[in-house]
């Protein structure tokens, strides 16, 4: 079978230790968490880090907890925990939607939210999920901690705001009233990356949308945050025509590329359908009317 190229290895026992290891080895060092993106790339020799810093022992980064009006998710939280979290199910049901269709249960036992976000594969679901719910991420480096929005987090394909020598430590999601969310994905086969996927979050108050987040996976070179959908929906009462219009906007604003999963026109079409479905379901959840 394919084998990785030679590399060094050490296991970090604390975030500070991991930072120190990264500092010691410079830009050719890579963190390894679940390993399900990095190791296949290393086997293909598309990634050839000279030194791996294993952060799987950092239990301090594995948590999903409520802190006042914020849900804090540690970067080392595994997919399976996101899928099963009662706290997330109560406030952000789209995590369970997405996790049910990310890879397969065995991969989900191992892969982490931090790894998924930092891999920044444009087809990856959790980046869209976090963008839709307007999460912030916490990045720690030698100079201390900084908090960036998902908007700022995605810099380019496979490139994030996490610089060499830094670690993504936490995802923070504000809890606001009237929330509902959903993730919709079409894949070629169970376990595959999306042909296209849409994450929607809505906050309903007084019969109208107080706020809306809509982000897309596999619909552009990076996760696509469709801000125009929020602009359209805010202040409006929920309705099927509005969802259709939002779908049309998303189909227009996305920037999909043709690949083995399909041509551009099909992906745009899918984005429209999935946007509509995700908004519809998110709204039903917000209104507690889900069928």
């Amino acid at each position: 079978m394919q084998t990785p190229a030679p590399c060094g290895y050490e296991r970090a026992t604390s975030v500070d230790g991991a930072l120190a290891a990264l500092a010691a080895h410079g830009p050719t060092a890579r963190l390894i968490a679940g390993g399900h993106s990095l190791l296949p790339m290393m086997k293909l020799r598309l990634a050839t880090p000279e030194h791996l810093v294993d952060i799987n022992d950092l239990d301090e980064l594995a948590y999903i907890e409520r802190d006042g009006d914020v849900i804090r998710i540690g970067a080392m939280t595994r997919h399976v925990e996101l899928q099963r979290s009662a706290l997330l199910a109560e406030h952000f049901a789209l995590f369970a939607d997405a996790e049910a269709v990310i890879a397969d249960p065995v991969v989900r036992n191992r892969g982490t939210i931090g790894g998924s976000l930092c891999q920044a594969d444009p087809g990856e679901d959790l980046s869209a999920v976090c963008a839709a719910i307007k999460a912030d991420v916490v990045i720690r480096g030698p100079a201390g901690e900084r908090v960036v929005s998902m908007d700022e987090f995605h810099v380019g394909p496979y490139v994030t705001a996490v610089a060499d020598g830094e670690i993504l430590t936490e995802i923070r999601v504000p809890i606001r009233p009237g929330a509902g969310s959903a993730h919709e994905k079409v894949e070629r086969r169970a376990g595959d990356f999306a042909i296209a996927a849409a994450s929607a979050a809505v906050w309903v108050g007084g019969g109208t949308f107080a706020d809306v987040g809509l982000a897309l996976a596999a619909a552009g070179p990076i996760t696509v945050d469709v801000t125009r959908v929020g602009e359209l929906l805010r202040g409006q009462p929920p309705g099927e025509e509005l969802f259709e219009a939002a779908g049309a906007i998303a189909a227009e604003d996305c920037m999909p590329m043709a690949d083995t999963r399909g041509p551009v026109d099909y992906k745009r079409h899918l984005v429209g359908v999935l946007t509509k479905r995700a908004l519809r379901r998110a709204t039903a959840r917000a209104l507690q009317q889900e069928a």
Binding site: D104, R188, R189, A190, G191, D192, F193, T260
Partner: peptide, 28 residues
Amino acid sequence: LMELISFDSEGNCLNSSFMDYLIPTAME
């Protein structure tokens, strides 16, 4: 429904791993 070995015009095989050569799982 899914199994295909295809090529681009330069003759690059587009389905050279199980990421892209799709075989049904128990779900299909």
